[in-house]
């Protein structure tokens, strides 16, 4: 326990504190010129400590101080009713729902592609290079067009955003699952052959169980990617709802504090999602009899 404290918790906390401290210094330095300008116009000559406090309390600072973001985040998360359009919970929920829809479709698609690649030689040789190429296409740049085009056909709301998330999240799953489905040793595959197991039996009883750790490792990457997809997908929807639209409207009105609070909300969602996938993975692996590494 003390080892864990000394080797992990202490250094991480120290680094986080250092980041917060650097943030404060940065907030002072970035906000100072504007504040100096304000003071000169008002004809005030504040002392240094007064001046520092002023740089930390501007309503639209260049870089908001951490406590300003924290207060804004707290107010918009806990003090507002969750149905209010100002509530971050509401916006996070909108983003989360399309993230999850896209993540589910992407994972499914990735698994199907991986199964196809492992079992059909033609697919293996023709599809794999294109899967890699598909990710060099900056799909996020396509996002606005997908949304606009689908809206023209009459598909709006959750699905277009989820499709972008799907595109981003199928890739890690497909690559990870191909690796996982091929991970059984030759000796195990030979054993299945001596049992006269069919291809399907080998798949269900050997390949699939062997691929589970790979699946969850790549799902962690995929869920983070599909959150990014959902956020960017919200940008062109005309700032209706979601973390992405909150960022966009913040940038229109220079409400930096709101933007940072939205970023914090997005980060919280990301951490929760990755943790949830990680925990599920651990539970599943334990239920399948994996020894703790």
């Amino acid at each position: 326990m003390t080892d864990r404290f000394r080797d992990k918790i202490l250094p991480v906390t120290a680094i986080l504190l250092a980041i917060v401290a650097a943030w404060y210094v940065g907030a002072y330095m970035l906000n100072a010129p504007f504040q100096r300008d304000l003071d000169r116009r008002a004809g005030e000559t504040p002392t240094f400590s007064e001046f520092v406090v002023k740089t930390m309390t501007q309503p639209k600072p260049t870089l908001p101080a951490p406590h300003q973001v924290a207060v804004n985040f707290y107010e918009n998360t806990f003090l507002r009713s969750v149905t209010s359009a100002r509530s971050l919970v509401y916006h996070s929920w909108v983003t989360l729902s399309s993230t999850l829809a896209g993540f589910a479709m992407g994972t499914l698609l990735g698994i199907v592609i991986a199964v196809g690649i492992v079992h059909v030689t033609t697919l293996d040789r023709s599809l794999m290079p294109w899967i890699i190429t598909s990710q060099t296409i900056p799909i996020l740049a396509l996002a606005p067009m997908i949304i606009v085009v689908l809206a023209a056909v009459g598909i709006t709301g959750l699905l277009p955003k989820a499709l972008i998330s799907t595109y981003l999240s199928f890739f890690p799953v497909a690559v990870g699952m191909v690796k996982g489905l091929r991970s059984p040793d030759a000796i195990h595959l030979d054993l299945m052959r001596t049992y006269n197991a069919s291809k399907a039996e080998t798949f269900w009883k050997l390949r699939l169980p062997a691929s589970v750790p790979f699946l969850f490792a790549s799902m962690k990457v995929a869920v983070a990617a599909s959150l990014v997809g959902a956020i960017v997908g919200e940008l062109p929807t005309g700032a209706v709802a979601g973390i992405g639209s909150k960022l966009l409207s913040g940038s229109y009105y220079s409400q930096t504090i709101d933007m940072f609070a939205a970023l914090v909300a997005g980060s919280v969602v990301a951490v929760l999602l990755v943790t949830a996938v990680g925990l599920t993975g651990r539970i599943v692996e334990r239920a399948m009899g994996a020894r703790p590494a």
Partner: peptide, 27 residues
């Protein structure tokens, strides 16, 4: 530093960093 920075870096890699884009444009 290594023990502190790597877990933090790992976590930050999962965050939707693209969201800083409007802030950078402003700066």
């Amino acid at each position: 530093m290594r023990r502190g920075l790597l877990p933090v870096g790992n976590m930050v890699s999962a965050l939707p960093i693209i969201g800083v884009a409007p802030i950078m444009v402003m700066w």
